[in-house]
């Protein structure tokens, strides 16, 4: 006799031949993907790495009817280097991002954030595209993508569009994707500037933890070593990953060593809109925002 797993009621028997009423699509090419999106009118649940979806739906798995699995789409797993940009397919895993030397060299903050996601078991399955489309305010790759001015290419049956990552997120687990749209790739522009960056993730433990708050920082310096462009983005402390534009403005054209760290930290702490939740209180997050901003700025000063 087969026992049911704990906490799960009415889970269908494991092996059977009677599930023809539901579809499980596994397209192998973009063409096939588009054909499915265009041709199939019922509800489709899209699965990438499954590290969020399968957790959230485990207790009610039987409610997912038709699946669209992106895992066989090799076209979405490419990382392409160009002179002026890098394109990362949406199905690239955290594991690959965290092991690629080119990513480490070009986008150290993204690299570090990918290496800090979950655990080896999660990084091998979870994808950059899944992290983006899930759109959790605590998605660890989101602040790094925002500080590198990433763009997102979205495809659908009607064509494609490219949007700024900064305009993609509209609320907790909400974004601008419409039904039938799929995130194809992430495009990160490359400049000749010298970058200095930092990534800080704060959580109750190091592995397998959803961030209580995170910070991604990227400064590009001009030839006279003044700050030409500044990006500061905070995760887990607002409905969306939040760029602190006032703080970015405040340090523009400054010499790195002359930044008023306290002023920047105060701005960051004031501009976020944290909530009380299981991972920390709003008050705690404002205090930690101060500390991690100080720490991140001190780190880049020593780079």
């Amino acid at each position: 006799m087969k026992k049911q797993s704990k906490g799960v009621k009415d889970r269908p028997r494991i092996s059977g031949k009677d599930f023809n009423q539901y579809k499980y699509f596994r397209p192998k090419s973009k063409k096939e993907l588009i054909r499915i999106i265009n041709g199939f009118q019922e509800d489709l649940t899209i699965i990438a790495g499954g590290t969020d979806l399968l957790v959230a739906n485990y207790q009610k798995l039987y409610e997912i009817k038709n699946w669209l699995d992106l895992n066989l789409l090799d076209e979405l797993k490419n990382i392409k280097m160009f002179d002026d940009k890098v394109e990362i397919g949406s199905m690239v895993t955290h594991q690959r991002l965290s092991k690629l030397d080119q990513i480490k060299e070009l986008f150290p903050v993204l690299h570090q954030a990918a290496a800090d996601v979950g655990s080896p078991q999660i990084r091998s399955r979870g994808t950059i595209g899944g992290n983006i489309v899930t759109s959790s305010p605590a998605g660890d790759l989101l602040p790094p993508l925002l500080i590198y001015d990433a763009k997102l290419k979205i495809i659908s049956g009607e064509g494609s569009r490219v949007v700024d990552a900064n305009e993609f997120f509209t609320g907790p687990k909400k974004n601008i994707l419409k039904k039938g749209e799929i995130l194809e790739k992430i495009i990160i522009p490359l400049k000749e500037d010298i970058y200095k960056g930092a990534w800080i993730k704060v959580g109750k433990r190091k592995a397998l933890i959803i961030s209580s708050i995170s910070l991604a920082l990227n400064l590009s310096m001009d030839r006279s070593n003044l700050i030409k462009k500044a990006r500061i983005c905070i995760g887990s402390a607002a409905p969306v990953p939040l760029r602190i534009k006032t703080a970015e403005q405040a340090i523009l054209k400054e010499e790195l060593t002359k930044i008023n760290i306290e002023e920047v930290a105060q701005i960051v702490s004031e501009k976020i809109s944290p909530i009380d939740d299981i991972r920390g209180t709003a008050k705690y997050r404002r205090q930690v925002a101060l500390n991690i901003t100080r720490k991140a700025l001190s780190e880049v000063m020593n780079q």
Partner: peptide
């Protein structure tokens, strides 16, 4: 050749 949590992988995958 990769470590996975088999509770987060569908058998079909």
């Amino acid at each position: 050749n990769e470590l996975v949590a088999s509770c987060l992988v569908l058998a079909i995958q």
